[in-house]
Write a protein that binds this DNA or RNA. Sequence first.
DNA 1: CATGGATATGCATCTGAAAACATATCGAAA
DNA 2: TTTCGATATGTTTTCAGATGCATATCCATG
Lengths: 126, 126
Amino acid sequence: METKFKPGLEQIKLDYKIWLADKDGNGILGDGKWKMLKLIGEKGSLKAACEELGYTYRRTWGNIKKIEDFFGFPLLEKHRGGAEGGSMALTEEGKLLVKAFEKFHSNADTLIQKGFREFLDDISNK
Amino acid sequence: METKFKPGLEQIKLDYKIWLADKDGNGILGDGKWKMLKLIGEKGSLKAACEELGYTYRRTWGNIKKIEDFFGFPLLEKHRGGAEGGSMALTEEGKLLVKAFEKFHSNADTLIQKGFREFLDDISNK
DNA sequence: CATGGATATGCATCTGAAAACATATCGAAA
DNA sequence: TTTCGATATGTTTTCAGATGCATATCCATG
């Protein structure tokens, strides 16, 4: 079948988001928050992680609260005070969640990219 | 491994969005616009489709223009005037695009749901 | 050749999420 | 016991995208 789609195929990009939500559809944990949690764990600091990812401290702090409120227990150990000002570290549950989400996301990515290539084939003439 | 995730697993929902974007990341065609195109095709009318889906005519008209501007050719045949006021119908390319996106979306859904079940397993103790 | 109803399009207004701003609190170390 | 820097949290401001409103345009049919 002849189609006019072919000429510009290479400029069609695929984008997607996958996230966990509560029963009312409020987003709980997705790409952004997952990366943020992971980076906080690596850096041991919320402030440092925000600066690296370019998010505001205020917003991210609120996000963390929402996630923990939803699950009902802390994903991060918070420490205030001291010469360093304070620090954060992932709890065991936090580590488990980050790891499981990473696996899920990574698998999904592979499959979605494959599906996208098939989609491009479908709208091409051959 | 013991985990505290188990109690509320059934209230964790999965949500996702998949869409096509241009090279600058501007969304071109996703879930909403795909369903809209499909429904316009079925109803033969933009106005009727908007009313059914609860979108404003103004917004949807703008979306259609964006999609067509991107692809560079019409996905819909538009007819103005006449006793009926006018009508819309999918072009051949429009039909092909809707069909291909539907297949892509449907396949992706199956795989993502499967991955989600594995994710829930991963954060459960077994 | 007048009419009606849908397409086509500019423009003002609303709105909720993100950003920006401000300030309080904590506590190990010097 | 003072200090310093990060955590904690309320308040205000911004702004893009959605909504709402208005109006022009088209033409098959009666």
